[in-house]
Structure formats: structure tokens, C-alpha cells
Amino acid sequence: MTTTAIRVENLGVNFRSNRRGRRSLKDLFGGATRRTRPGTFWALRGVSFDVLPGEAIGVVGRNGQGKSTLLKLVAGVLIPDEGHVSVHGGVAPLIEITGGFVGDLTVRENVRLTAGLHGMTKAEIARRFDDIIAFAELADFVDMPYKHLSSGMKVRLAFAVVSQLDEPILLVDEVLAVGDKAFRDKCYRRIDEMLASGRTLFFVSHNEKDLRRFCARGLYLDKGALKMDADIATVLAAYNADYGKAAS
């Protein structure tokens, strides 16, 4: 029997609309019920699927349909209200990509901090530091405070750090939509290398070209439910057809 990389079973997450999706400590640690209350909505509900090791899955749907929420649940950033998420192996998350960096620390200090938080040892960080800086094209800025970097520099640095992780599952949320063409091409080549090595990709994007390039299978989320799980071409055709109907 083949072990799944990701198993999602009857997954549901409920947000309080008057808190912009943030649940309180009382909600998380006793005192919350799973009954829908006034002022709440289900960002996801009843979602189930498996991802096999080495699969490349594209997640599609309009804004507000639960795509990024699903990615955060798989990453362990959010806690589900219903169902279960099982992840077999570590994850390299490219989600809210510049999050976790500290403005007053230098680029050098942020690389050490962020890579360490992702589980890299001091020896691994030292061995890969030059590769991270070279990929990010920040050799002249290693001792500059992070807060003085441009937005493009910040994205390059974050991708450079996370793409050096050896975790078997790569989670990507629209990161390839940011940055200039030269950097995007570099990211594409790096992801191609990671997929060729047998890594699993879970990829949220609105870019149909990117989805077709990397993914063989697609998940179509609509109103917090899994509307379709099929090959990526079929999923994109259904999504485009629905979007055309909604827009007309």
C-alpha cells in the first residue's frame, strides 16, 4: 500500500467574520464549539483528498474560496475545526513568503534565523549560506538591515532560503507572481529540479500557464468545498467555464 504524502479527511475550518478570520485562544484551547454561530462562516468544509509522494497538485478557484486557507492547514499554520490533515514528511512552505523575517536584523542574520526556524542546523546553514545569497543575488547586501531591502529583494531572499530546504513536500502560494521575469525563470528552474528529484508539490495559483507547466492534477475549490479533483486540464476547463458563466 502506497503511503500518502498528504491526506485530508472531511476538513473544515470556521472563521469569525468580525475577527477577520482570527480565532481567539479561547476558541483554540477549550471553550469553542463546532456549532456555526452568528457572524461566522465556513472557509472550508467537507474537503477530502489524498496526495501521493511525488505528485504535483495545482489548486484553483476564485479569491475567497479557501485555497490559501487549505494551504495553511496543510502547513500546520491553522488548526481545523472539523476533520484531519495528515502530512507524512516535512514541508518547505512558500506561504506569505516574506513573513518571519525581522526588519532590524541584517540579511545575514535573517538567513541564519529563518533557516534555523525551518529546521536547518548551524552546519547546514553555513554550508548553504553562499548558495542562498547567490540565488537571491544579494552578495552586496548581506550586512544591510532587512527592512531596507526592496520588495523584490525580500521575495528573492525568502525563496532562496526555503528552496534550500530538503523537505519532501513543497507548498507554494502565488509566490511566482512576484518578481521580475529573470527571477521567475530562475524559480521555475529550481522548482523543476525539485520535482525531478521526487519532491511533492502543492501549488496554489491563478496563473494557468504555471499550473499547466508544473501540475498533472488539479483541485477546484468553490465556496469552501472541493468541486472537482481531476487532471489539471479538465479542472482548468471546468473552472474557466464556471468563471465565464459567473462573469456573464
Rank of each mutant, 00 (worst) to 15 (best):
E167I: 06
P168Y: 01
P168V: 08
P168G: 06
P168K: 06
I169C: 04
L170T: 09
L170F: 11
L171V: 09
L171A: 13
L171Q: 06
L171C: 08
V172S: 09
D173E: 04
E174W: 03
E174N: 05
V175L: 06
L176C: 02
L176A: 03
L176E: 02
L176Y: 02
L176R: 00
A177I: 01
V178S: 08
V178K: 09
V178R: 10
V178W: 11
G179L: 02
G179Q: 05
G179F: 02
K181L: 08
A182H: 06
A182T: 03
A182N: 10
F183C: 01
R184P: 02
R184H: 02
R184T: 00
D185R: 14
D185T: 13
C187E: 01
Y188H: 11
Y188C: 00
R189S: 13
R189H: 10
R190H: 10
R190P: 08
E193D: 13
E193Y: 14
M194C: 12
L195M: 13
L195G: 09
L195R: 15
L195P: 05
A196L: 15
A196E: 10
S197H: 09
G198E: 15
G198R: 14
R199D: 01
R199I: 13
R199P: 04
R199W: 05
T200M: 02
T200G: 04
T200Y: 08
L201D: 00
L201F: 04
L201V: 01
L201K: 03
F202E: 11
F202K: 11
F202V: 11
F203L: 09
F203P: 07
V204T: 04
V204A: 03
S205M: 07
S205F: 07
H206F: 07
H206A: 03
E208G: 05
K209L: 14
K209Y: 12
K209C: 11
K209G: 10
L211Q: 05
L211H: 04
L211C: 07
R212C: 07
R212N: 06
R213G: 02
R213V: 00
F214E: 07
F214W: 09
C215N: 00
A216R: 15
A216V: 07
R217A: 05
G218M: 09
Y220I: 12
Y220L: 14
Y220W: 13
L221C: 03
L221V: 00
D222H: 12
D222P: 01
D222E: 15
G224M: 04
G224T: 04
G224C: 07
G224L: 01
A225D: 13
A225L: 12
A225V: 11
L226K: 14
M228Y: 03
M228L: 15
M228H: 05
M228P: 04
D229Y: 01
D229F: 08
D229L: 03
D229S: 09
D229Q: 05
D229P: 00
A230V: 14
A230D: 11
A230M: 08
D231T: 12
D231M: 14
D231Q: 11
I232M: 06
I232D: 10
I232S: 12
I232L: 12
A233N: 13
A233I: 11
A233F: 10
V235T: 08
V235M: 03
V235A: 05
L236D: 08
